[in-house]
Design a protein around this nucleic acid. Structure first.
Length: 853
RNA sequence: GCGGAUGUGGUGAAAUUGGUAGACACGCUAGAUUUAGGUUCUAGUGCCGCAAGGCGUGAAGGUUCAAGUCCUUUCAUCCGCACCA
């Protein structure tokens, strides 16, 4: 009898073996088909969380499976090492962001290694290293030279007490998270990348991404937000100025009852700056956050400028407002308001007693337009020359009319805005520009002076950006004239690093360029990208833009960086609070008599909503505890078996033990049967018992099913198939030595099928089965189609749609024969009774339905 | 507010094109074995009902011989929203 499976010893041993044999280190091999598996790189926050385990287990299964299928598989890993949390840690704990980050990387790398991932660690990349960001500084300058990077004024959240810029997540209820001071909006000169230049192409090319989830493509489509509409320009009465508006609903022009522009519209100050209450109103607008959500949800408020605009067709004078729900960044920053057919305009009109005129007829006559706007299409009414037209035709007619009058023209606009890159923070990639003091000229840092490295000696004693306060770093000379110059002290958005890291992996030792064209041409595009659905828009869109921008700068990269994408669901967990409302970690509570109590003091615990795991709510679980207790294989297997990977996973402690028991069971079953099995590679016998044939059939079916399940990311189903096979193996009693051959075939197959999921256990058993080479280097088993086909089939017999019996039929049974068999079933006879059979339906291979009545 | 998703037993979930709802597990119940215990094995387990049978995929309608799947309406929950990563 065998000893119990020693997880710790075994896992460490096989990880060492993979390392020593450099099992997963790859080079370009033009003769071999490549497969690039990419998992989204982690931010080194401290310790890995369950979301990481899920992500990297998935990529690992794909990598190991594809390797077994014969591909040259690249599966790299790195660290998205720049970002805000490092600076928060620096401020809270007085550590240097670099030290904090590098400590975290060391810890997390050890944790990932303990998962037994098939990663080529020789290609590890950390984005906070100057050797990484020097290349993107060069890229940035190249983009600038191509006209893809530029500077303009833009609004930030400003904390007036700390004198610092706040991220949206640092704004809580309109107040700074540290100071509690009401946040202001402030305009700064900032760098942008011209992603809008590619808006149409990024939209159109979504069609070329069939291996992306539909939902992600739709989200990007909506994000880019192409809309067909009309630009128009109307003179403002009693003024020299005129207002440029944009609308997607030119058909509703006769329903226009007011005009409105954004609070930061250049005309706002000009026309109303001296009006009473203007300053207060602007203040009010500025107290709303900069996020789209905050703006949309804020109460709709307006300020009447006192000016009017004459309606181009009716001649009526309509009031011109400044309104907080108009975005300067969208369209022209001004609209005409049609309250009858737009929700926001309606809300606004109700509040300021503006007329509501219906111009599109609604199919629901009862609905009162004064209570509810009508948003759909319909026939035009109250619209002079448009009356009776369909909305779509009316749109064209209005555009044509305004074009004739030289007041407007049809226009296509995008919701997508240019990518604001500047961050007023230390722990980011320095933007490689200097400003000459004499004339303010903006000069790129010459290539031979790159990288512009972050200074090490910084302090957080004062608020604000340490680079800006640094005594020496920012003072330099102009590379062109040698005159005094000041460095750009803003750093890059960290999405900049993550927009090209997958290229750096290809050639991590290249110190001249970020990567060579040869490496890119061999490995790109990424065949399978895997990561969180929360990145569906920003990161994935920025990366798609980045490859196009790099191509414009002369790099050999494909337009689309990721040909296949899989987005995993979030990992969620129940939340817990003590009596005073403090959040509690799951390991700070325990059950006493069926009630959750605090471990410390046995006080009652309130359980709350199941939400995405987050540190702020303390509903996190440290996967290391699980790996230490049950082993990496059990953790991986449980995560794969529990939920479909694209769905949210509610973490529970209960299921992991089942995976652990299963691993032990497999170990025991295989170990116990080895002595009695034929030797490996012994020749296939000719005769099998029926049970053995059955087992062989199931073995081959399982090979096929597991492969297609893995390829479709139905890992939970693959696990179910594997468990069915192992159940069949345990139930199987060989009748002869020939049958034992079938038994060995099934067991070897089982070990091969679990190898991508539980790689350590698989190696252990593969060795036990007599193989000297690693299972990690062993090809995927082949299945025999002839063993899969069955000559009988079992189908259900319904009477009036309810199943009353199941029958077995030969594959080729004709309808007459089927009818005879079906009607002879006692259950069917009982249900039919003496009622008349009105119809007999036989769908070959599927179902029989007898309709009586 | 806008956009995207999800809803099936006590729990996680399965279910080609509409065609045997609940595979595979977790948990639970009973029994057996062993151990100090975690284990292991056998049987059972959607709900109601003694049974026959009936009812069951968030809710309400509809189409169909047949609906978890298609259509309409509706409710609930979760995620993203441009300076978190």
């Amino acid at each position: 009898m065998s000893d119990r499976y020693n997880i710790k010893e075994s896992e460490a041993r096989w990880q060492k073996a993979w390392d020593e044999q450099k099992c997963f280190e790859v080079t370009e091999e033009p003769s071999k088909e490549k497969y690039y598996v990419l998992a989204m790189l982690p931010y080194p926050s401290g310790r890995i969380h369950v979301g990481h385990v899920r992500n990297y287990t998935l990529s690992d299964v794909v990598a190991r499976y594809k390797k077994a299928k014969g591909y040259n598989v690249l599966n790299p890993m790195g660290w998205d090492a720049l970002g805000l949390p490092a600076e928060n840690a620096a401020m809270d704990r007085n550590v240097h962001p670099a030290d904090w980050t590098n400590d975290n990387i060391a810890q997390m790398k050890a944790q990932l290694k303990s998962m037994g991932l098939a990663i080529d660690w020789s290609r590890e990349v950390s984005t906070c290293e100057p050797d990484y960001y020097k290349h993107e500084q060069k890229m940035f300058i190249q983009m600038y030279e191509q006209g893809l990077a530029y500077r303009k004024e833009s609004v930030v959240n400003w904390d007036p007490v700390d004198n610092t810029v706040l991220a949206n997540e640092q704004v809580v209820d309109g107040k700074g998270w540290r100071t509690g001071a009401p946040v202001e909006r402030r305009k700064l000169n900032q760098w942008f990348l011209k992603i809008t230049e590619y808006a149409d192409e990024l939209l159109e090319s979504l069609q070329d991404l069939p291996r992306w989830p539909e939902k992600v493509r739709i989200m990007q489509l909506n994000w880019i937000g192409k809309s067909q509409g009309m630009n128009a320009e109307f003179p403002i009465d009693e003024s020299e100025e005129s207002l440029k508006i944009y609308t997607t609903r030119p058909d509703t022009i006769f329903g226009a009852t007011f005009f409105a522009m954004a609070a930061d519209h250049p005309l706002a100050q000009k026309l109303a700056g001296d009006k009473e209450g203007y300053e207060d109103f602007i203040q009010q607008c500025q107290s709303v956050g900069t996020s789209e959500e905050a703006i949309e949800k804020a109460e709709k408020i307006g300020f009447n400028t006192g000016y009017t605009i004459t309606h181009p067709f009716t001649g009526k004078k309509l009031p011109l407002y400044i309104a907080n729900f108009i975005l300067m960044d969208y369209g022209t920053g001004a609209i005409y308001g049609c309250p009858a057919h737009d929700t926001r305009d309606h809300e606004f009109a109700k509040k300021y007693n503006v007329d509501i005129i219906q111009v599109v007829s609604s199919p629901d006559d009862a609905a009162d337009i004064q209570d509810e706007p009508y948003l759909g299409p319909g026939d035009m009414i109250n619209s002079e020359f448009l009356d009776g037209m369909e909305s779509e035709d009316a749109k064209k007619a209005v555009i044509q009319k305004l074009e004739e009058k030289n007041l407007g023209q049809g226009a296509t606009i995008f919701r997508l805005r240019d990518w604001g890159l500047s961050r007023q923070r230390y722990w980011g990639c320095p933007i490689p520009f200097v400003y000459r003091e004499s004339d303010g000229a903006c000069i790129p840092v010459p290539e031979d002076q790159l990288p512009v490295e972050l200074p090490k000696d910084i302090n957080y004693d004062e608020p604000g950006n340490p680079l800006d306060r640094h005594p020496t770093w920012k003072y330099t000379t102009c590379p062109e004239t040698g005159e005094p110059a000041i460095r750009e002290t803003d750093t890059c958005d960290t999405f900049f690093e993550s927009s090209w890291y997958f290229l750096r992996y290809l050639d991590p030792n290249n110190s001249e360029r970020g990567f060579s064209d040869e490496a890119s041409q061999y490995w790109m595009a990424v065949d399978q990208y895997i990561g969180g659905v929360e990145h569906a828009v920003l990161h994935l869109l920025y990366s798609r833009f980045f490859t196009r921008a790099l191509k414009a700068c002369g790099y050999a990269v494909p337009d689309e960086p990721f040909s296949g994408l899989f987005t995993q669901g979030m990992v969620t967990h129940e939340t817990y609070q003590d009596e005073t409302g403090n959040w509690l970690y799951p390991n700070e509570i325990h059950k006493v008599d069926g009630q959750w109590m605090t471990v410390d003091g046995n006080k009652p615990v309130k359980t709350g909503a199941i939400t995405k795991m987050s540190k702020s709510k303390k509903n996190t679980v440290d996967p290391q505890d699980i790996i230490d207790t049950y082993g990496a294989d059990a953790a991986r297997f449980f995560i794969l078996s529990d939920s479909p990977p694209d769905r949210d996973l509610e973490w529970s402690e209960a299921g992991i033990e089942g995976a652990w028991r299963y691993a032990n069971k497999i170990y025991k079953v295989v170990q116990d049967s080895i002595a009695d099995l034929p030797q490996k590679d012994s020749s296939k016998p000719a005769n099998f018992s029926d049970q053995a044939s059955e087992l062989r059939s199931q073995t081959h079916k399982t090979i096929k099913a597991v492969a297609s399940d893995i390829e479709a990311f139905h890992m939970n189903k693959a696990v179910a198939r594997i468990r069915e096979l192992s159940n069949a193996i345990t139930a199987f009693k060989p009748q002869s030595d020939d049958d034992k051959w079938a038994s060995r075939e099934a067991i070897e197959t089982l070990v091969q099928l679990i190898a991508p999921m539980m790689p350590h256990l698989a190696e252990e058993l593969w060795a036990a089965l007599g193989y000297e080479s690693l299972i990690a280097n062993t090809p995927w088993p082949e299945f025999d189609e002839s063993l899969i086909a069955s000559d009988t089939l079992t189908i259900g017999v319904q009477v009036n749609g309810k199943v009353r019996a199941t029958i077995s039929l030969p594959q080729d049974a004709d309808e007459t024969a089927v009818k005879e068999i079906a009607l002879a079933e006692p259950g069917v006879q009982k249900a039919v009774n003496d009622k008349e059979i009105r119809k007999f339906i036989y769908v070959p291979g599927r179902i029989v339905n007898v309709v009586v009545g």
